[in-house]
Computed example of a mutant assay.
Amino acid sequence: MTKLIRLAGKTDFVFSEIQLTLCDSMFPNASELTVNNSQYIIKNYHSWNTKDVPDVRTWLEAPDPSTNFVAACDKKTAGTGDWILSHSEYVQWRQSRAGILWIQGKVGSGKTILSTTIIKDLQADPALGCYYYYFDNCDNSKTKTTARGLLQSLLLQMATSSRSVHPALHAHFTKCKRGQLEPTTEDLGTTLAAVVKDLNSAFLVLDAMDECIEVNNVFKHLAHIKDNLCIAVTSQSLAETSYDVSGNIHLDDAQYAFQQDVHKYLQDQFGQHKIKQELFTEIVDCLTQGAQGQ
Rank of each mutant, 00 (worst) to 15 (best):
Y45G: 02
A168W: 02
R6F: 08
Q152D: 02
P183A: 14
A223F: 06
E278K: 10
P183R: 06
T50M: 06
K274N: 15
L114P: 05
H46E: 12
M1G: 13
S153L: 07
L206T: 03
Y265C: 06
I5Q: 04
Y134C: 05
Y45K: 07
P63Y: 08
D210E: 14
E61M: 10
T191V: 09
F219D: 04
S153K: 03
T190C: 03
V205A: 07
N49C: 11
N37G: 01
W102P: 01
Q19I: 00
F173P: 04
H224I: 01
T34N: 10
A202Q: 00
L85A: 13
K264F: 07
F69G: 05
Q152T: 02
E211G: 06
S16P: 15
L266R: 04
K175S: 14
D187T: 13
D253G: 06
Q19V: 02
V195T: 02
N68M: 12
L33G: 03
M1I: 11
E32C: 07
E61V: 06
S38N: 13
K51L: 12
L85S: 08
A232H: 01
S237I: 02
H263F: 07
S38H: 15
Y133E: 05
D285A: 15
A194M: 12
K76A: 09
L20W: 08
F203T: 00
S31G: 06
K76W: 03
N200C: 03
D64N: 15
K226A: 06
C138H: 11
L101N: 08
A62C: 05
L22S: 14
Y132C: 05
I100T: 11
E89N: 14
T190Q: 10
G9F: 11
N68I: 01
P183W: 06
V91L: 13
H170N: 10
V107P: 03
N228I: 00
V262E: 09
E240R: 14
D227S: 13
L204M: 02
